[in-house]
Structure formats: C-alpha cells, structure tokens
Design a protein around this nucleic acid. Structure first.
Length: 101
DNA sequence: GGCATGACTACTT
DNA sequence: AAAGTAGCCATGC
C-alpha cells in the first residue's frame, strides 16, 4: 500500500499521540507506555516538538518520576495531582482513557 | 544504508 | 531499592 504518504514518519501516528495527550484530564497523568506501548520513546520525541495546546506535563514515566524535573512537577502539583516526594503517586494519579468505544 | 540518540519500559543482578 | 542490560520506533547525520 504505497508505504508512507508524504512527509516524515507516519504523521498519523504522531497525530494520534498528540491526541491521546490532549485527552488527559486536568489533575491526572498518563505514561509514555500508555500513550504508545510499542514506541514509548517516540512519545517523548513528539512531545518535544509538540504545539502549545498539548498538556505535555501530564505525561510521566511508568514509575512516577517526571522527565522534566521540578518544572513539570510544579505544574502537576498545581493541577492537584497527588504526589509523593519528587514523584507522582501513580496509584492515584494514573489515568486510563475511556474504554474501547 | 549503517550507526548513534532520545522527555521509555521491563527484566535481571 | 538501585543500577545495569536488552528491546523498542523514528529521526538525523
């Protein structure tokens, strides 16, 4: 099927990633693995160049640590995300998108 | 076209 | 609990 269309990478995949991140409610967080199980590293690379309407700070590591340090943690705390020291309390803050629909 | 890099994850010591 | 190792996808040189 003609492989990729026109531009770098599967634009669709990157778009889907951004869409997932936009869907994370305020006060909650998601993990790279949740956004893209097959390519968690891809998520970070996309977020690095993502538009400002994307709540990048709501994406954290699976163990609750935040890649962007205090800058990111401060935003999360400000939104009411439960934290434990310098990491997010994943038991309470991890958000799973709405079930298959 | 091969090799290194990155906002990762899971498994093993 | 912490550190090391291997696996993963796409990008850039």
């Amino acid at each position: 099927m003609h492989t990729t269309r026109h531009t770098p990478a599967n634009e669709a995949q990157d778009d889907r990633i951004l869409d997932e991140v936009r869907a994370i409610p305020k006060g909650w967080v998601s993990t790279y693995g949740d956004v893209s199980p097959a390519a968690p590293r891809r998520v970070g690379q996309v977020l690095a160049t993502a538009p400002h309407d994307v709540p990048w700070h709501r994406v954290v590591r699976a163990d609750g640590t935040v890649p962007q340090g205090s800058a990111q943690l401060a935003r999360l705390v400000d939104e009411g995300v439960p934290t434990r020291g310098d990491r997010v309390d994943m038991k309470r803050a991890r958000w799973t998108r709405t079930p298959t629909r």
